[in-house]
Design a protein around this nucleic acid. Sequence first.
DNA 1: GTCTATACTCTGATAGAC
DNA 2: GTCTATCAGAGTATAGAC
Lengths: 191, 191
Amino acid sequence: MRDRSDTRTRIQEVALDLFTEHGYEATSLREIAERLGVTKAALYYHFKTKEDIVTSLIEDRLAMIEELLDWAHTQPDTVEMRREFVQRYAEHLHQGGHDKVMRFLERNQTALRDNPKSEQMRDLMLHVLEVLGPAGTSVTFRLKSALAVFALHASTFLLRDGISDEERHAAGLQVALDLIDQGAAERHTRV
Amino acid sequence: MRDRSDTRTRIQEVALDLFTEHGYEATSLREIAERLGVTKAALYYHFKTKEDIVTSLIEDRLAMIEELLDWAHTQPDTVEMRREFVQRYAEHLHQGGHDKVMRFLERNQTALRDNPKSEQMRDLMLHVLEVLGPAGTSVTFRLKSALAVFALHASTFLLRDGISDEERHAAGLQVALDLIDQGAAERHTRV
DNA sequence: GTCTATACTCTGATAGAC
DNA sequence: GTCTATCAGAGTATAGAC
């Protein structure tokens, strides 16, 4: 992956920024090219289509979640496992800009709904939610599990004032773990 | 507002559906017109621009949140007030399809970022978060307050299986109130 | 209040020179 | 690996008939 050209990487970075800031559909290839100081045609040398840029952005992230899910399926279904799962998830999320990718996907869910890789991501995220809040458990339990994941994704931009990214991540993780613990207490109180 | 023509209302309904499902930018006026069985030009009789359709969709919602914020500012800053605030917010949200509007806005944040009414909504939502988790309180407290609001917005589509909308709303409200209560307990544990 | 017809702009994408 | 030139299609929007 690192033997790719520098331009290719720069295209990915600029595209991710613009897609997240202005939206996928609202960002034209002309805009990306302009910010890079090249022409549209140059982009087409590196990526066959606009959709291909998105695909390249998502792939690493998909692999990481798949790996994490594989691990979870070898573990017993306990609170400790779910805590550990959330911790690993958070760790991976803040590596290699994967939180940026998740933010991009969240903000462009609808525009990307026909993108195969994006569908795959939605599918994997449902599996993540299934690990943290299996079907058959109470509604509030499952909702809290989903919120735990969202807390990790959103802590970066939900907390505004002058605090560092590390503090944001720590707060997100703490709140997520709190939600997991609460779930454990009420998990079987109603179905 | 009810003295408006039926066609106008139908345009709003179809537009909201398509904007939410396929995304704002990805939805063309041709698509909306086709689904309604009219021509593009007919749309332009009722709305001056595509952006105007969005504006008309948001207005009611803006008024309701403003009203709620006005109420909050006459109240003392206590846990009871915040619980009451959340309950009223939830009630308003599920009236007149306002949850649909919020979902549309959440899913199209980026595409709508230059829309004045959408900016106004973001601004009001920051005030809502400020009521529930004032600046100066702990980071986790504020994050939980934000998650409480998100729980209300998201309960409708975060819970998939065969449960009714009423059950979804009830679960969302319960989880939101839980988060508010927790915040009260830890509010001053750190700044 | 809704139509047809049309103007104009921008989009993603391709072909072929350097 | 990047360029110029160009394409067809779709976008929003307008003018004017009915």
